[in-house]
Design a protein around this nucleic acid. Sequence first.
DNA 1: ATCACTTACGGGTGACGTAAAAATC
DNA 2: GATTTTTACGTCACCCGTAAGTGAT
Lengths: 286, 286
Amino acid sequence: MIEMYLFEQLDAVAKYGTLVAASEQLHITQPSMSRAMKKLEETIGVPLFEHKGNRLELNEYGRLAAEYARRILDSQEEMVIRIRTLERSKRTILLGSCAPGPLFELPSVLSSLYPDRTISTEVRNEETLIAGLKQGIYQLIILNRKPDNPEIICHPCGTESLFFSLPKDHPMAGRNSISFAEMDGESFLMYSEIGVWHELHHREMPNSRFILQDDMSALREVTRASSLPAFVTDLSMRLPGHDSKRVNIPISDQSATMSFWCCCMKDNEKRYLRWFQALEREKETS
Amino acid sequence: MIEMYLFEQLDAVAKYGTLVAASEQLHITQPSMSRAMKKLEETIGVPLFEHKGNRLELNEYGRLAAEYARRILDSQEEMVIRIRTLERSKRTILLGSCAPGPLFELPSVLSSLYPDRTISTEVRNEETLIAGLKQGIYQLIILNRKPDNPEIICHPCGTESLFFSLPKDHPMAGRNSISFAEMDGESFLMYSEIGVWHELHHREMPNSRFILQDDMSALREVTRASSLPAFVTDLSMRLPGHDSKRVNIPISDQSATMSFWCCCMKDNEKRYLRWFQALEREKETS
DNA sequence: ATCACTTACGGGTGACGTAAAAATC
DNA sequence: GATTTTTACGTCACCCGTAAGTGAT
């Protein structure tokens, strides 16, 4: 039987070329390394190295062994991660979203439906969310479009509409609605963690500049003291601390309203049935 | 890092159900087993077992871990076997054949061409030979038909023709040739290790009985003392110790002559080029 | 009482580190 | 002399076995 520490050391030798380099990486002494490789050769019964001057080099068999070592180490690490992830996913619900808006209200609903589980949320891009859902890192994800994958189940979970937030003395402040095009070219103050909304802004207002701030309360301070236009949404307006000294003008473009879908893996559909039913009820009441 | 002995023990527990049973199989004591499983749980950080009465049972995580354990152990064993096989294949030539005839002469030719390598031979069925060739167990194999695989290179290596071996007082002993059908129904003495020839005998002489003997010299003794018909081939006739007190009558059926091909993996073609050239020369001289 | 597992304790293997030597550049 | 590997030796971790204890059937 070949113990794992031998594979680890072989892998390091294959990676770093010499026993000295490998032993430094693994924080063991070089003689220990030398002995381990000898033991490996003895166990397999085939020489894995050949002397090239004063250094040791993997031969054909050694390279084959190193390939296996890498594979086995990977398997072992993958095992630990998968088990830990699986266990964690039973205790917590990690809700990933493509935008922060849905995360304002939904976690508290989740929490009341699943009181024994921890609710965590993250804003990530679509690719990361879908990959993470498949791997079981996320139990639920919120996307702004249905993914084309029969293994993933989706339910609608509301919309979010963008508004321009203007100081009262702004020339456009009296309007009932404004289009992206009308404002394109100005500079905007903006929260940086808005996920997929960034794509929209750059597509619809290619000539504008966006001044990003990743601290929401800092952003509020700056906005209050500035005459620059900014953005709010119908969802963010309800948050406590919202600035009422500005006027919020609806954006006339259709693309300014985003629809969200909440998705889980088909395998977990039953587990989140209550949740999806709650979403349906919410839809009806609004 | 999870050492291999932990995987081995986990695998045994998964296989045998209880710590006691598993520990007996591995020839270690049960407390040792108990500690090892605890250590595994501690390392991963997730419980792998649950108590079911007075016995321990793998839970969901434990079963997942056991799957990985099995995979990792398999990888490790596969690694050792592959390396040893590869190394062995550099030092020896294992020549497998579907029939013993070609093995009478060819090994000595091989030996003279590759004096630094050990030559071994085996008679096996076609399936085993082809699978073994692919795995590198055999370096060369001899088949009675070309395999339909572009990765395998074949060269003709002679023929073998079957004869009836009859006592001089047998009614057919005076014939120039006999067909299978004419002798079908009789009982034959026969060497058992004749590989693919068995198929021919049962196909062409379905009503005959074959009395098998796996010891060639014992078979000769019995044949000498018996009046039963037997078989020889043009190749076996040349062997020392051949019985000259009988008459050997050619078999008129075409199927009584078998053609052989010697095959190696395309990757090894160069290595055995000398060998295949020698076969070509042999073909010309005969 | 029996069976399966856990806890406690002592012993021996072996993996590691230190020190020094050998070999190659 | 600098670098890399090998050899020699002492130490300590840890894996195992024995023995006793707990809980379930």
